[in-house]
Simulated scan of single mutants.
Amino acid sequence: MNGADILDVARDAIYTLLIVSGPVMAVGLGVGLIIALFQALTQIQEMTLTFVPKIIAIFLSLLLFLPLMGAQMGDLMMRLMDRVASGG
Rank of each mutant, 00 (worst) to 15 (best):
E46H: 02
I55K: 14
Q45R: 13
Q45A: 05
S61K: 10
A57H: 06
L29W: 14
G30P: 07
I44T: 07
S21V: 03
L49C: 02
Q39T: 12
F65Y: 06
A40V: 07
Q43E: 11
F51E: 05
A26Q: 04
G30W: 07
T42M: 09
L62K: 11
L37P: 02
V24R: 01
F65W: 05
V20A: 00
T42D: 09
L29K: 01
L17F: 15
L63A: 15
L37R: 06
I34T: 10
I19P: 05
T42L: 04
L41F: 08
P53E: 02
L64W: 11
V20I: 10
L41C: 03
A26C: 10
F38K: 13
S21G: 09
T42Q: 05
I44A: 05
A40P: 07
I58L: 09
L60K: 05
A36S: 09
I56D: 10
G28K: 08
V27N: 10
F38R: 15
L37F: 01
A57V: 00
F65G: 00
L60S: 08
G22H: 09
L60A: 13
L41D: 06
G32A: 04
G22L: 00
A36T: 05
A36C: 04
G32Q: 00
L49Y: 01
G32K: 07
V52L: 12
A40D: 01
V31N: 05
L60P: 02
L49D: 11
L37I: 13
I56P: 05
F38M: 15
A40R: 01
F51V: 09
Q45G: 12
A36M: 03
I19E: 01
E46P: 03
S61Y: 08
S21E: 06
G22Y: 08
Q39C: 09
E46F: 08
A40L: 12
I56M: 11
Q43W: 12
F38E: 15
L60W: 14
I34H: 12
L33W: 14
S61P: 15
G28V: 07
G32H: 03
V24E: 01
F38D: 14
L64I: 13
M25S: 00
F38N: 15
V27L: 03
M25A: 06
G30R: 11
L41V: 10
I44F: 10
T50K: 10
V20G: 05
F38C: 15
L18E: 07
L17N: 11
T42K: 09
A57K: 06
I55R: 14
T42V: 02
V20Q: 11
